[in-house]
Amino acid sequence: MNDNNKDDKTLNHSRRQFFKISTALTAVALTPSYILKAADDNMDDKIAELFEKRDLNIEVNGIVHTLSIEPRVTLLDLLREQLKLTGSKKGCDHGQCGACTVHVNGQRVLSCLSLAIMQDGKKITTIEGLAKGDELHPMQAAFIKHDGFQCGYCTPGQIMSAVACVREGHANNEDEIRSYMAGNICRCGAYPNIVDAITEVKQKGGTI
């Protein structure tokens, strides 16, 4: 296969054309006739859907999903709106709060700035995948014990971030914990208790 083929591995010509049209909503004249016909039959939504969607294989909390999605769907919206995994929170949608923190291939990232389509073949862990059945993850238990939350909305993000923080080796003292947790805003202000929870988990040791 030469480079040029690989480049556009999924899009054929007419699809690309339609794409431009349906997004820019102009230049109807360029639209292939069978699409115009379908549009006349009031099927343009269906067609747009078909043409604008792409295949995605993604493993979330151990379950492989085979999906068809628009490339503009973020990982966060995929989780919350399509997979109904609402544990990952939206606090800003612009990378400015950390509420949407999930693990992708073991690394903590912001799902609101991750395009779902770019996670093809990756393993995602969300807050829903942290506990083993009924048994809470030690970080979850420590958050309860230390009252590391109030309203609870930032909490899944804090916990996912905290678990990664310990795994990365960035939880050696309180100041280091604070620095490496700085990307998780808690408007209720549960910070001191969160630091206590992480410190305890870190000190207990073991693999988490």
Binding site: E52, R54, E70, P71, R72
Partner: peptide
């Protein structure tokens, strides 16, 4: 956000 075309480059 407008929808867009997405490609993965290999080279």
């Amino acid at each position: 956000m407008i929808n867009f075309n997405y490609v993965q480059a290999s080279t």
